[in-house]
Each structure stands twice: as structure tokens, then as C-alpha cells.
Amino acid sequence: MKPAPFNYIVPTSIDEALALLEEHAPDARLLAGGQSLVPMMNFRLSRPSHLIDLNCIPDLAFIQDNKDHISIGAMTRERTIEESSLVRSSIPLLYEATRHIAHLPIRSRGTIGGSISNADPAAEYPAALLTLDGEMVVRSKQGKRQIKASDFFKGIMETAIEPNELLVEIIVPKVPPGTGFAFVEISRRHGDYALAGIAAQMTLSGKTVTNVRLAACGVGPCPIRLNDAEKQIIDDGLTEKSIQSAAKAAALEVDPETDLHATADYRRRLTAVLTQQALLKAKERAQENN
């Protein structure tokens, strides 16, 4: 359980990292928190020629308040996000999603950029960012691109980032007043990857739902926006019956697989149950904020 030989490089600035990436891509890998990459290397399933360690680039770790949105540096630790009062007040869904990520030691090391770039199908952040309508800022030596979450996640551990690009920042719009949210998931053990997880955010104006966004994780190759379920709520409101119908619609629009931990059918069932839970919780919170 020792990695294959690799070259280890520690850039101290973004420009330096981009130059190294340009030079060594596609055989190089970027080391963020290392919570997925290092085990993969120890199994020799990942065998980078060069490991570019991003942990000594101070410009990549920040949480900034920018009027209508929050900017988060890619190397910001999950634990820092969890403890940020700014995140908690302005984009509370991201806070709640963070609470579901693994265990404290892993969150203390793991980063938001690492999680998003790794794009594990069951990871919480991709689903949360899809729900929050987040955007990723990626840079290469050639320049800078901004990619919407809906265009970012492409498949199982596959994103829109090119081999010579570095994810530097995540931009998340602040939530409007009257908004409720929920991130719920079920895993076999506390802290495991979710068998299924649902992120929900909705805005109420009085009793009218003006906006609802739902996304699922763990039930497809990448996070899935639950359009049919959302439509159900927009059309029929938040009655017990419409919430159940939305939940059942959600179960039909996900694309789960059977693995050692759960069958596809069971994952669909969990999607329904969790969608119901998430909608009820988000509704309750939205009403409180109204």
C-alpha cells in the first residue's frame, strides 16, 4: 500500500502552479486535501508523474463577502466553511451540506476545490452547488473561465476542467429573504458517502413558492437537478400530496446504479423519501424566514 514513484513539487503561487501544470499535464495530479487522491495513489490506482501540492498557495484559501455573492477559494478547508458565520448566514445550504461530509479529521484536511474537482458521484458539494446555482472559476496559463455548476459536472469523477486548468474559486449567490433550505442524506454509517442525498432550496413569497431548486447526489454519475420534482412544487404548491408527488417524480428522474451498498431500486426509494424530507424541512425554514 505504497504509492508508485512520483515527483513532488510545491508551488507557492497560482502562477507557479499554472506553469507547472502546463509543463506536466496531463500526467500530473494536483494535491489539495488528499483525502481521495492519496488513498488512490497508495492503491497505485492513480500514478501521477508529478504531484503538485497546492497547500502552500495562500491565495487559494479564503472566504469573501462580495455583495450579492460569496467567493470561496478552492483550497478552503471544509472545516473552515463549516465554521464560517458568513457561509452560515448567507448560503446556509452549503453549511448544512458540509456537516454531512465524512468526519471531522477529514473535513479539517479536505477542501471544497478538491471535492468539486474530484466530483465523486456521492459527494455533497456538487449537489449543493447545483442547487445554489454556484459557479466555478478555473484558470490556466492562457486565461480564466467561469463555469456554471450545471455545466461543470460531466460524469463519474469527470468535470469541465481541462488538464492544464486549475480550479481557483467558487462563487455562490447569497440566498434571498424568505428562503428555506435543507440538505438530507442517508449513508450506511455516520460519515460515509451517501447512498442518496438531496439538497433543496426554496423561496416563498407569502404562501407562494417563487423558486425551488432540488438536486440529488449518490444516485447518478454526477449530481442531478430534479426538474420534474421542482415543477410539481411550482405547479401545485406545498401540500402533503404535492410534496409526495414531487418525491415520487424525483425517484423517477434519478439514474442510480446497484453496488455493494444498495440496489438501484433502493436508491430510488431513498430519493423519494429524502426529497419529501428535504422539501418539508426547507418549507418549514422558509416559513420561519418569511
Binding site: P39, F43, R188, R189, H190, G191, D192, L260, H261
Partner: peptide, 25 residues
């Protein structure tokens, strides 16, 4: 649970797949 497939191949080769209870469970 240790799981083999129908060809005798072991499917649970790490703690990602073999779930031990931890204190919180």
C-alpha cells in the same frame, strides 16, 4: 460483509466497501 462475485473475485478489498461500525454507529 465480505462479498465475492460469482467468479470468486473478492469485491470488498478496502474499508470503503467493508464497513466496520465506528463509535457513532
Amino acid at each position: 460483509e465480505i462479498t465475492y462475485d460469482e467468479n470468486g473475485q473478492l469485491l470488498t478489498g478496502s474499508f470503503m466497501d467493508y464497513l466496520l461500525p465506528s463509535a457513532s454507529d
